[in-house]
Structure formats: structure tokens, C-alpha cells
């Protein structure tokens, strides 16, 4: 029972981090209909900036720099590349992000070399005793931070001008433009938000508690699990991203313990396949209807 509670908390903690990544994914998709294959490289970029600036700024300062720079990179990708090709369809733009991903990831992996730094200084490897159950502090903090961020996001999405504009644009791009919504501003903000969320997520991923591995190519692979998370929930559903993220986290934690570490990664993707077969647009995604 104790192990099960422990696994549950671990799964929720991991799930919270995946939810952050998946949420970024969904926000970009809603705003632009582009699937951002460069999400993993945003994660790496944020983490790398933490590593570089940690010595001079201290961990907290470096963490802020990392988060901001991941957001800025996402913004730059949107402004410099995607917004330049308005005529290209979302499919080609998704391919374009693959190009970005390859370049950024390879360069950062080259710079990291053989060093695999852990970057969750404030919470990593400091287990907590809660009622006789040992828990990873990383997962608890992740759960807390993600809850705060996701709540803030949903409030903004519901009530702020950006949120309303964003939902309007997702609903009908032409109509939104007609009532004076600046499409470019909505889109850039979406990318910025997604980048910031990725920058936060990496602080939890590249830790001993979460993955047992420091910032490396492996971090990029872990970030790939945000794909199934977003797909399970439905690519255009923000609430779905949270459900998907938690599902992925729980499946990962439970299958690692009860089946095997090697199988856990496949398990996540298997669950995604099953969901896709039953519901091709994910659990909460809008079903595409075809008008002939």
C-alpha cells in the first residue's frame, strides 16, 4: 500500500510536468494549427541556459534566465520562421519545426559534451517523509508549481484579453481578424507561453528524482512523452492536455514499477495508440467534421 501511494504521488508529479509540456503544445496548436516538433529543443535550451548561468547568478537567478530564454527562443522561432511563411500549410510548418529541433538539439548536446548536469538544485535528491511514506521532493514541488501555473493559465485563458482573443482566433480566424484581433500578437504570445512552460518543466525533468539523468539528449527524449500526453487529451483541448499529462505520468510510474523500466516508455505510447483507435481525435479533442 505504501509503495502504491508512493507510486501514485510519483505519477502525479511526473504527470504534472508532462501536463506543462502538453499544455504548451496544445496552446501552439490552438493558435496556429501547427504541431511543434521543436518542443523538446525548447526544453533543452532552457535547461542549458540554467547550466551556463548558474555559476554567476546562483540557481534561482539561473532558473529565471532559463525559463525566460526558453520562452524567447519559442518567440523567435515563431517570429523569424513561422510568421514569414503564411502561405505554407500547417503540415509543412510542422516539418519546419523538425528542422529547428534538429539544429538546436544537436548544438546543445554538442555543447554539453559528456557533462550531464542536474539542474533541480532547490528540490533534487531531498526526500521527504510524509506519514511514514518517503516521497521525492521534486515531484511534490512539481505538482505544486504545475497546479499554480495551470490555474493561472486557465484564469488568463478565460478572463484576460489575450485568452478571449486566443479562443476567438481558434474558433474562427477570419471572423477574429474582422473584429480587430491581431492574429500575430495572439500567435506570438501562444508560442511565448509554450516556451516558458517548457522552461519550467526542464527544471524538474533533468533531476535525479525524475529521470536519474542530467541534462542530455535523454531529456529531449523524455520531453517527447508530451506528444502522447497532448494527443491522448486531444490536440486542441487545454483541459485534455492536463488529463493527458497526468495519464502519461501515472502510466509511466506504474509500468516502471510493475513491468519494467525499459517497457515504461513504450507503455505510454501504447496507451496513446489505444486511445487513438477508440477516439481518433483524443479524449476531449473536437472531432473533425468533413463538409463536402
Amino acid at each position: 500500500m505504501e509503495t502504491f501511494v508512493q507510486l501514485l504521488v510519483n505519477g502525479l508529479g511526473k504527470g504534472a510536468v508532462f501536463a506543462l509540456l502538453a499544455l504548451g503544445f496544445v496552446v501552439i496548436f490552438k493558435a496556429t494549427e501547427v504541431v511543434n516538433f521543436a518542443h523538446g529543443s525548447l526544453v533543452l535550451f532552457g535547461g542549458y541556459l540554467v547550466v551556463v548561468t548558474r555559476e554567476t547568478l546562483g540557481w534561482a537567478g539561473a532558473a529565471v534566465v532559463g525559463i525566460v530564454s526558453a520562452g524567447v527562443l519559442a518567440l523567435l522561432v515563431e517570429r523569424l520562421l513561422l510568421s514569414r511563411s503564411k502561405l505554407a500549410d500547417p503540415f509543412s510548418l510542422a516539418l519546419l519545426t523538425i528542422g529547428v529541433d534538429v539544429i538546436v538539439t544537436e548544438e546543445i548536446v554538442r555543447r554539453l559534451g559528456v557533462s550531464l548536469p542536474f539542474i533541480g538544485d532547490a528540490w533534487d535528491a531531498q526526500p521527504l517523509q510524509v506519514g511514514g511514506v518517503t516521497m521525492f521532493r521534486t515531484h511534490l514541488v512539481a505538482l505544486l508549481v504545475a497546479t499554480v501555473l495551470i490555474t493561472a493559465f486557465f484564469l488568463a485563458f478565460r478572463y484576460s484579453n489575450w485568452g478571449v482573443a486566443m479562443r476567438a482566433q481558434a474558433e474562427n480566424k477570419e471572423a477574429a481578424a474582422l473584429v480587430g484581433i491581431r492574429s500575430s500578437r495572439v500567435t506570438s504570445t501562444a508560442w511565448l507561453v509554450a516556451g516558458v512552460l517548457a522552461g519550467v518543466a526542464v527544471l524538474f525533468i533533468a533531476t535525479q528524482d525524475f529521470s536519474g539523468a542530467g541534462l542530455s539528449r535523454g531529456t529531449h527524449s523524455i520531453a517527447l512523452a508530451a506528444f502522447p500526453a497532448a494527443i491522448i487529451g486531444g490536440l486542441d483541448s487545454t483541459a485534455g492536455a492536463i488529463v493527458g499529462g497526468i495519464t502519461v505520468g501515472l502510466v509511466d510510474a506504474l509500468s516502471t514499477h510493475y513491468i519494467s523500466f525499459a517497457f515504461a516508455k513504450s507503455a505510454v505510447f501504447l496507451v496513446m495508440l489505444v486511445v487513438l483507435v477508440v477516439r481518433p481525435s483524443g479524449l476531449f479533442g473536437t472531432r473533425e467534421s468533413i463538409r463536402v
Binding site: L81, L96, D101, V102
Partner: peptide, 10 residues
């Protein structure tokens, strides 16, 4: 090839 993908799409 990463750059080539970007250039081709653009």
C-alpha cells in the same frame, strides 16, 4: 539537413 528542411519549407 536541419537548415535545409527550414529553407525548403520557407
Amino acid at each position: 539537413y536541419g537548415a535545409a528542411i527550414i529553407l525548403v519549407v520557407l
